[in-house]
Amino acid sequence: MTVARAAGGHLLYLLFFVWTLFPIVWLLLTSLKTRLDAFSIPPVWLFVPTLKNYGQILWISEVARAFVNSLVVSATSTLLVLLLAVMGGYAYSRFEFPGKRASAFVLLVTRMFPPVVIVPSMFRLLRATGLYDSLGLLTLLYASFTVSFSVWMMKAFFDEIPCHIEEAALVDGYSRPGAFWRVTLPIAAPGVVATAIFTFVLAWNEFLFAFMFTSQRAKTAPVEFVGIILRETGVEWHLMAAGACLLMLPTLALSWVIHRYFVRGLGLGAVKG
């Protein structure tokens, strides 16, 4: 009975694993196929893998530029959000001020609206102001859409750090900014990294705003890859798969880092409440 139950459990895990990983494995395999293999029906499982698709897609100048655009927009908006989230999260965690509860709630409520509701009005506004299709605009949009959640995230991390530790630094001869810089921020480092990665990944994967508010100059990688699907020469599955794999790389790498930082965060055992 116990063996059967254990086997059943493992089977469930296996199914879940296949269900989750199959699309990614399929994408990876397609990215390593030639155009002929990619289009063959029934699909071929045994083929000679090639990295040509990767080389080819990076040689398309629009793609390279879209990658750089994505990187610039994601990194800049992450820096901007971090600055605001660290300061805002700290203030919400440590200080009492008029309107604290209300403003914290409003901040969170802004996350409840689907982003698409602001698209029509924004579109007209951006056209009229000439901000349409600019990297600066995308950076601001991404930052303003993630900052609310990031402030809450940083607040939660600061809440975890007992006030006594900071007060010890104050008595030890440091000003509040000094105590924050030397004690609170280093202890909250895993939280800062987690927030940074969260913001970066959201910006890196964002499609809607980039699709609606860019046309040439500020086009980001996800938008560019949709363009590849819809080429005059037909759908280039093998190229698109290679592009999608490249697009996943930073997210995967960051997930690895985040996992290490989360473990470190849990390891701060000496901090007692």
Binding site: A168, L170, P186, G269, G273
Partner: peptide, 20 residues
Amino acid sequence: LKPKDRDLAMVFQNYALYPH
């Protein structure tokens, strides 16, 4: 005066050591 300017030392109940 701010705590830093009082030149006192404090031992907290939970020690408040800097974990990092």
